[in-house]
């Protein structure tokens, strides 16, 4: 796994590569926290994520939920086949695509 975080003022760019599983969850959590809390606009590049499990997915969901609550923007700029499959299987593609948000709050 590698996570590269660039924060430039309110702009953030995060590149995640390799596996996003329970084994790395704690590390990703720690690394994602600063950009998610500091940036008004955050781009996530998941193009080279080789594997993602529930722990990885819920990190992304939590980050996205936060951006919705604070009115900031979080967008996934690219995702691998694996990430796409998981988003499809959980019907969360729309959620990240900032379309219809299907959450309990509705």
């Amino acid at each position: 796994m590698t996570i590269t975080v660039h924060i430039n003022g309110a702009m953030g760019h995060v590149v995640i590569e390799g596996e996003m599983t329970i084994f790395e969850a704690a590390e990703y959590h720690a690394a994602l926290l600063p950009p998610v809390t500091q940036c008004h606009t955050l781009e996530l590049d998941l193009t080279n994520v080789t594997e993602i499990d529930t722990s990885g997915l819920q990190l992304l969901v939590s980050a996205k939920l936060r951006s919705q609550q604070t009115g900031s923007t979080l967008s996934i700029t690219g995702h691998s086949e694996t990430v796409q499959q998981v988003l499809d299987a959980t019907d969360l593609a729309g959620f990240f695509g900032d379309q219809v948000v299907l959450t309990a709050s509705e």
């Binding site: 969901v61 939590s62 299987a89 019907d91 299907l102 959450t103």
Partner: peptide, 12 residues
């Protein structure tokens, strides 16, 4: 499928 996120706490 509906993925339920309501028990998911804030990231921090």
């Amino acid at each position: 499928i509906i993925t339920l996120t309501d028990t998911l706490p804030p990231l921090d």
